[in-house]
Write a protein that binds this DNA or RNA. Structure first.
Length: 209
DNA sequence: TCATTAACACGGG
DNA sequence: CCCGTGTTAATGA
């Protein structure tokens, strides 16, 4: 677990991370961050995947993006700077290990370590781009493109071409109804992009275009 | 036109 | 049997 951090930062920073950061473990489905809660630390994901979602004024949830190994959410940092309540919810997609760095420590490190500074900057850009991607997808793309993106993302996260999810769960993630997911999936199956099973979808080659 | 909601039958686990 | 799936009809944006 620490070897991953060694690749990212110099030994002195790794040592500080080790003593000042709090290492946490979450089981699949555990809520890491919830709406309205206050953020006081920034997480770096060491292993596993985290799904980040938000909700509209009616309480409808929609999936924003995933956080994977070695990624962090620099958004969390700005959130705790302003002592703002969280607009997002984060849930462990599988078993997750992360290290949380308190905001005070972060401020010190930004001056002290150049590797930390560039890591945070990099985190900002990747998070922002990810968010922009999601936004574009939701705003400008039709549902079938979103569905394909969703399936391909899931494939990347799980590392498997077989996605285990019911049509209802997919509909929830994309904030739409099951009827349309069933219909679109059936279309994709007819186009030989995938094969449908109960609670499972097998992606075929040629879906990433 | 296309999504949503409700309703229903089918069938696999 | 229970639940996921496939489909349709009515309604709405």
């Amino acid at each position: 677990m620490l070897s991953k951090l060694n690749q990212l930062f110099e030994p002195a920073l790794v040592n500080e991370l080790n003593t000042l950061g709090s290492f946490k473990n979450y089981k699949e489905g555990e809520v890491i961050m919830d709406y309205g809660k206050f953020m006081n630390a920034m997480p770096i994901i060491l292993s596993g995947n985290v799904r980040v979602m938000t909700q509209d004024e009616d309480g409808k949830e929609i999936l924003l993006y995933y956080l994977s190994s070695n990624e962090s959410c620099a958004m969390a940092y700005t959130c705790c700077m302003d002592a703002k309540q969280s607009e997002v919810k984060a849930v462990a997609e599988d078993e997750v290990n992360l290290v949380a760095i308190p905001q005070k420590i972060m401020d010190e490190w930004l001056c002290k370590y150049t590797t930390w500074r560039s890591y945070i900057m990099h985190s900002f850009t990747t998070r922002f781009n990810e968010l922009l991607n999601s936004f574009e997808s939701i705003a400008f793309k039709n549902l079938d493109d979103r569905l394909i993106k969703y399936l391909v993302d899931k494939q990347k996260i799980s590392g498997s071409a077989v996605i285990k999810a019911s049509h209802q769960q997919i509909a929830d993630d994309l904030a739409t109804s099951r009827v349309v997911i069933s219909r679109l999936l059936k279309h994709l199956e007819n186009e030989n992009k995938l094969i449908l099973y109960r609670n499972e979808i097998k992606l075929l080659k040629g879906i990433q275009t």
